[in-house]
Write a protein that binds this DNA or RNA. Structure first.
Lengths: 197, 197, 197, 197
DNA sequence: AATGAATGAGACTTCATTCAT
DNA sequence: CATGAATGAAGTCTCATTCAT
């Protein structure tokens, strides 16, 4: 008796997720070209052939990983949008960004790796641009709500700070005083210091 | 005929530099794994074999490129250190960073590419950390000179802004209002707005 | 319940025939190596695994297809043998050959595909030789009946014409004036033109 | 000192020809899909990699083989066209076809193999159609010169005979009385038997 | 010093076949 | 009887590296 449709679907979903997550991990760690299907298969505990049962090619797998990123990012934005108070929003954004840098590390590494990959450079840029644009919009609205001068530029400035600090911490590691800098930043963007003159 | 010897030397150095620069260019554009020795040789206008006359391996070539980066960076810092007025220093740093982003793009791309390469990951990080450290120090001294509170954190903040903006512009391209943001930033860090309260 | 047994038998035979015919079709279209078990299973509307329930291997399936061909060919010859008048026989042979070239196309394609397959090359040749031999014999007897000179050679000549024309039409397609040539041939081999001098 | 341009060219031509001829042989013997690059490399006495120094892909190699065939065919036609006497032309065509069937065997096998290969099916058909068309034209002109009725159909008939006999001999082998049939055919198409009524 | 032909290890990918259910 | 997930050998192709000239 063959397995039921449901059983097959469950198997497929589980295996697919396993491959996908392993690929995400390895692509982020060693880059697209530096990661072989063998690596992924071995790390995922499956045979090389099976990977091709789930993804038509390494490219295809990479695209699926990209999609994973998009979904994650959208969830992130969704969470923040529901907060009403702009000052709290700012605080949450800064805090969550720096407390959960793991996700960001993957994002940065994947992004830079993929952007060196001609085959997906464009797709990657579309995604990253989308992320940036949405991020800037989000911050801009917060600054508008607060009533600050030049909300567009302020949004881009804070965006740069967040990404710059993330980058410094992620790529340069342990001796970056992240906690201290987070406090410093929170203070700069606290209610008292932001009130429109 | 000592002349001939010298000429040979000169030719060797010129060829070596050509290979090195071509490699730098291509590694930055397509990543380490994405660049073949054939690519480099063709772009440099020499034969594959000759490249191996100058560099023992692709790894070796990559290391040489890393060294090139170090030298470039040191020159950059040297230029800025000689300016006496701290406000002018700040202005020059901001302006030169954003008017000459090409070098930064190469840096970012090479850095991320090499950091995905296990064989030089550590060396790359040492270099990048050195760059960051020196950069932070430079800014910290400026803020100290100005007499601002919390010069260490302010240095890291401005560093994050600079790298964040660079990253946004470089990887996300055309629609980033770089000039406008540069002005905005210059204003934030102008004498009038920085004076210690 | 002997019924059930019979039904099982019937299902088995139907499924087997379906696989076999699908295989015949696909082998003829894309060659032996160009056809995968997956292709066959999908086209036959069954699972890959089930195909192996009916045939031990791809080779086995190919052999079964070869057998199918033998049977078809024998039926073909049987039909013609029962006609008494030799002139009519000739006419029927020519007409049926060219009105039903589909079967021939399959034959040619399967034959050439299988003859490129070391594992069954010999078997294929035995079959093809048998077909040729039987065909030549059939024609030879007709020419003998008619009383023509050199019936053996005349048989081989007509055989060559039939297969040559089939080949030209099948592999070179639309612009071959098959109907016109059939008429032309029928006239050449009509009673009036064949009568022994 | 590097080799001269000429030396390199000579090496390339020799190696290229060797690969090409080996490929022609093996493709004809085992079909396109049945022949691996490893097979070809081994038979040609070179490394797998080198084959790709000369041909970008297996497809590419196949196309080159096709071109080889075209050239051979054109040479064949060129030879025959220069003979003035139509009866002699016919004789030469028949004789050379059947004395040199080796070339034809390759042609048939390659043709049928390639026609099972979706990637070149069309190219192959174009070539084969060209060959057929040119052949038919050649024969038609001969029959016109002789003044026979229905030269077009007669041309196609003789074409079918030639290809049919070739096919019978080539694919069914030793026991086909080729010499006897050639004589028989030469007689049928001799001056005495062809004279317009 | 210089060339590019040649090698071979290793990457991506396919597919006949097996097997748990 | 029936399914399709899973395997692994084998094929296509790439590229760092060597080497004869």
């Amino acid at each position: 008796m063959p397995r039921t449709e449901k059983q097959f679907q469950s198997i497929r979903e589980k295996t697919r997720a396993q491959i996908l997550n392993t690929a995400l991990e390895l692509f982020a760690e060693k880059g697209f070209k530096g990661t072989t299907i063998s690596d992924i298969a071995k790390a995922a505990g499956i045979s090389k052939g099976l990977a091709y049962n789930y993804f038509n090619s390494k490219q295809d797998l990479m695209n699926a990983v990209l999609n994973l990123l998009i979904i994650e990012m959208e969830q992130l934005f969704a969470v923040i949008k529901d907060i009403p108070d702009p000052y709290k929003k700012l605080r949450i954004i800064i805090e969550t960004t720096f407390t959960n840098l793991e996700r960001d590390e993957k994002f940065w590494r994947l992004y830079t790796s993929f952007s060196l990959q001609p085959e997906v450079k464009d797709d990657t840029e579309v995604i990253a641009n989308g992320y940036l644009h949405e991020g800037f919009k989000l911050l801009e609205n917060i600054f508008k709500q607060i009533g600050i001068k030049n909300p567009k530029s302020e949004a881009k400035l804070l965006g740069a700070i967040i990404d710059g600090m993330s980058f410094h911490y992620i790529f340069n590691g342990e001796n970056y005083p992240l906690k201290q800098m987070t406090k410093f930043l929170l203070n700069k963007y606290s209610k008292g210091n932001l009130l429109p003159k």
